[in-house]
Design a binder for these strands. Structure first.
Length: 401
DNA sequence: AACCCAGTCAACCGCAGTAGG
DNA sequence: GCCTACTGCGGTTGACTGGGT
């Protein structure tokens, strides 16, 4: 219990005592749930009006579900749906959930978000990879993996989200004429402006189909409507990421994947593929934009296309993680995405196959960690990268502190 | 048993909207 | 119209707890 001297008065803060609750309940019974500040002015309780109201609303009000009562699946579903619809309007959402307060909903949501963050941060290592798995148990603490295998999104409040680079939604990348090499070609931007309207929740709640088809998001008018877009938030880099060199989109969010292409001077550039910018055929690109319907040995696994189209990005991530972990596979996007353009990379799935013969054919290293895989590559793999490309450590728009 | 960590919950803080003087 | 107090909301923090090591 904390007390604060406020002039002649002593204000009490911290946990409420049962006696205080009784006084408050009695006050509400007599005077109604209003004039909270008069509780203090009448000398009933040494608490601020705000504190009294909060205690009543969150704890003492009749018909509240008792604390510890977990959200039912129906409640969860409703919260998720309403949050997608309304945003963080906890009070509004809570009003649709009998017995729940805005605080309940808020806490529920933040817990859920943490769970998601952890799920996204958790590396998907093949079984039997012991040390490597332990060493990378938290991607965010592994700078080398960050440099090659992940991007981070940070909310204005500073909460970071780490996403394997292969999962980087392509719309996070913006075409920039300054980087155009020639008509039909473009280099990957090194200083991509993050679309500030895309905070973590935006990304995670996207419908996969929309991501590919480009129907739902990110027209210029959308940016205008969001108000925040491309303005201060951008300058403050509320979204921080590391680019995934083979994924680029145009300004109007036609999701386009451009595969690295060798140039005569040895540099890598990215070729525009007409017909991949949002038409129906683009749905077929789901696996192609880093969504892991990936080849592994002779198998494909991942989420059926029909299901992908119905899921949002978050659902998809969790689903794919689960399915891949169940089959002891590693998601290919966990690995350095730019290397997927290399022929050297093609043998990587073998490392993660559960078929020993396939494993053997691809194995030239004891460990299966992404780092060890990278170090196992021939040096010339990196020669094919864009020479002007800054070091991975410089890819960040800003570094998490 | 001690420690660590994640999850949960309660409460605070700051800000914005509103009503009343 | 301006100021002030009140109220409500959303973000954040810190205490507590339980499970795992």
């Amino acid at each position: 219990m904390k007390t604060v001297q406020n002039g002649d008065e002593v204000l009490r803060k911290g946990p409420w005592m049962p006696e205080e609750d009784e006084i408050l309940v009695e006050y509400v019974r007599q005077c109604g749930a209003r004039d909270w500040s008069s509780i203090r002015s009448k000398g009933l309780l040494p608490r601020t009006g705000k504190s009294c109201r909060l205690r009543w609303v969150n704890k003492l009000k009749p018909d509240l579900k008792r604390s510890g009562c977990k959200f039912s699946p129906e409640e969860e579903k409703l919260v998720v749906e309403m949050q997608a619809k309304l945003g963080n309007k906890w009070a509004k959402i809570a009003s649709c959930l009998p017995g729940r307060t805005d605080n309940d909903v808020k806490n529920f949501w933040s817990t859920r978000q943490k769970r998601i963050l952890r799920a996204l941060q958790r590396p998907k290592m093949p079984s039997g990879s012991t040390d490597a798995a332990a060493d990378t148990s938290d991607l965010s603490k592994d700078p080398s993996l960050n440099d090659f295998g992940a991007f981070q999104v940070q909310s204005p409040s500073g909460t970071g989200l780490l996403v394997p680079s292969g999962f980087v939604p392509p719309f996070l990348f913006e075409e920039d004429s300054a980087f155009r090499e020639a008509p039909g070609h473009m280099r990957l931007r090194h200083s991509v402006q993050p679309f500030s309207s895309l905070d973590v929740d935006d990304v995670l709640s996207l419908k996969l189909q929309d991501m590919v088809a480009g129907d739902a998001h990110f027209t210029d008018s959308d940016f205008t409507q969001t108000g925040r877009a491309l303005t201060d938030d951008v300058r403050h880099s509320s979204v921080m990421y590391q680019h995934s060199p083979h994924m680029v989109t145009t300004r109007n969010a036609r999701s386009v994947k451009r595969r690295p292409r060798s140039r005569r001077d040895g540099r890598t550039c990215f070729e525009h593929h007409p017909g991949t910018d949002g038409g129906p055929e683009s749905v077929q690109m789901l696996p192609d934009i880093g969504i892991p319907l990936i080849q592994n040995g002779n198998r494909e696994f991942g989420v059926p296309l029909s299901e992908q189209q119905n899921n949002n990005y978050l659902d998809f991530l969790l689903h794919s993680e689960t399915s891949c972990m169940q089959s002891n596979q590693i998601l290919s996007p966990e690995l350095p995405s730019f290397l997927t353009s290399s022929h050297q990379w093609e043998k990587l799935p073998m490392l993660y196959s559960d078929d020993p013969s396939i494993q053997e054919s691809g194995k030239d290293s004891d460990s299966c960690s992404p780092d060890s895989v990278i170090s196992g590559f021939a040096a010339d793999v990196f020669d094919s990268l864009e020479p002007l490309c800054p070091a991975p450590s410089e890819w960040w728009v800003a570094r998490l502190t």
